[in-house]
Design a protein around this nucleic acid. Structure first.
Lengths: 339, 339
DNA sequence: CTGTTAGCGCATTCAG
DNA sequence: CTGAATGCGCTAACAG
């Protein structure tokens, strides 16, 4: 392994000088910088992060915490896409990314603890958000830098988080249905413990309200995420005396299941029922019909959170902030004019 | 930060003793072990990996290399699932996982180089496999431990890899179609640069051959993975004078697109055309019809590769091996008896 | 602008 | 069975 000493020797300078040119310290003459860099190149020098970290106490690594892998939700294309966003800034800033899995909540907590205590990373991004998360509690207690994708369940103003304006998005997409003549609109969301669900649902309700439309009995359904593809939800809806003509579904993958169940039951989309969805996953353009969905810009969610986190790890006095990434609606073929 | 010295002091032993109990060195008396461990617990000691690595030259970390993120293929649920498999053994063995992104092949190579030169990880898992991969060349040249998921393009016997028997799987699933009376069977695969595609295709061909069935002109189509959801592939197939009655598609996500295009063109699955697929992603059970698909056990692919890699990093003299994880066919509703 | 000196926290000789 | 000494590769004062 070629070390800083080797290049020092080869260049005829001291190790600390080499260290300085690595850090691009401005008080080093361009000449020696050049010389040293050439030697580094020639010898194939690469800095050993462990040594650096030990000395400097900065890992230039961040951790991404995935939700419990027991959760089927992991199969949601959301994750590769956030990871891609995070990865982009990670790479650009020459950081590295440690991924935390964990099958149970307990395991996740343990991994996070190992990460922070073992000084594996400078900060952490939570890729999920749940009620009473012990991980959040731990991180806050330790004063360890972290940012959250989604909305924290408490101390909103004290936790840096990156989110969409899900309320407005929910409202707008519902309004789209209303504007197309729908007045019996149902809502299928994931667990109500999730803020995404809640916010989108509130937006949905608000849209109905503004339009003077009632929220009918049985028109709001929460289903375990991915559970039997929203089959039960659809069945409930279809068993209603007055069926909806439009449905707002909070996730594309769920929509796929909803779509299938609907058509299996002989109701056609959008002929009989219109569907709008969220996330704009790749699959939403290849379903039949292709889904009108709100693109929440998952990539940006990831990239922004990484940037915010890195910023925080560098300057710990920085104030917590909320970052809202814009969404936009992609109009496709799952909605039709009603009457 | 509580160090080894702190617990040494608290216990009245020397730092080296503490180090030894951490390593569970057998030549330490049970008594002192107990004492030291209690102190560690009490003080909240956690070993600093960077210090450990510097001294011991083992990171207990492995790197997972994703394919180019420019590739849409990243949205394939394959990745979360392998990662879940890898994560499980990582966690169990108390290792950590570094994820490498990278938008271009060049970036990926750079990241891998940084990982190995900077001694970020003890070994690396390649989550993809392509022709003439400079990453593989680099890893081999450096003699750096790595395993590959899928089939290496050369030096098959020198690269430890974890794969399915895609040939037989392809053959068997095609036979399923044949057994159900189909004799005009087409094949839609991803890039022919991918071994998965090639192997599955060979299996398909072999099945036809064994059954004395011809491979008709235009019946084998390669399409860029995910490209417009296999739309063009289907259109080509449908424009043929003699249409197939069955199609073998090499990936569930692609199947979704194929399914959509088929039905949009007015051909019903499985009434008019039967479909079989690969991977058994979650979505394959919620499409309409649900897909008959071969479950390649993605989770095991991940877990096995992690185990093999860890094994290799511990004992570098270990011989390269090929690990075949079993598949099994999941019969659902996308195939019907023909004639 | 550059060299010298000290560690960072831990594992590992080598003694005992 | 345990302690003392040394160094892993690098950064960070402190001098100059």
């Amino acid at each position: 392994m070629v070390t800083i000493k080797d290049v020092a020797k080869a260049t005829g300078v001291s190790p600390s000088t080499v260290s300085r040119v690595i850090a691009d310290n401005p008080r080093i003459s361009p000449d020696t910088k050049k010389k040293v860099r050439e030697a580094m190149e020639k010898l194939g020098y690469h800095t050993n992060i462990h040594a650096r970290n030990l000395a400097a106490k900065s890992t230039r690594a961040i951790g991404a915490i995935m939700p419990s892998s027991a959760d089927k939700a992991l199969q949601n294309p959301f994750f590769p896409e956030v990871l891609r966003g995070i990865g982009a800034v990670i790479h650009e800033r020459q950081y590295s990314l440690t991924l935390s899995s964990g099958e149970t909540e307990q395991e996740i907590l343990e991994e996070v603890q190992r990460m922070v205590y073992g000084s594996y990373v400078d900060g952490v991004i939570l890729l999920y958000s749940r009620v009473d998360d012990p991980v959040v509690a731990f991180l806050e207690e330790k004063g360890f830098p972290f940012v959250m994708i989604g909305k924290p369940f408490s101390r909103l103003d004290e936790i840096t988080h990156v989110d969409n304006d899900n309320f407005t998005a929910g409202k707008q997409i519902t309004n789209h249905l209303i504007a197309r003549g729908h007045d019996r609109i149902a809502f299928i969301g994931g667990s109500k413990d999730l803020f995404v669900t809640r916010d989108r649902e509130s937006g949905y309700q608000s849209a109905l309200e503004d339009a003077g439309l009632p929220v009918r009995d049985g028109y709001i359904i929460h289903t375990e995420f991915l559970k039997s593809g929203g089959k039960e939800a659809v069945e409930q809806l279809l068993s209603l005396a007055v069926r909806p003509t439009g449905i707002v579904v909070t996730d594309d993958l769920m929509s796929l299941g909803v779509l299938s169940t609907l058509e299996e039951s002989g109701v056609q989309v959008p002929r009989d029922i219109s569907l709008v969805s969220f996330n704009n996953a790749y699959l939403s353009e290849i379903t039949r019909p292709a889904l009108t969905t709100v693109d929440i810009n998952i990539y940006a969610l990831g990239a922004q959170s990484a940037m915010a986190l890195i910023e925080r790890t560098i300057d710990k006095t920085i104030k917590p902030k909320r970052i809202i990434v814009p969404y936009n609606i992609i109009y496709r073929s799952s909605v039709r004019e009603y009457k």
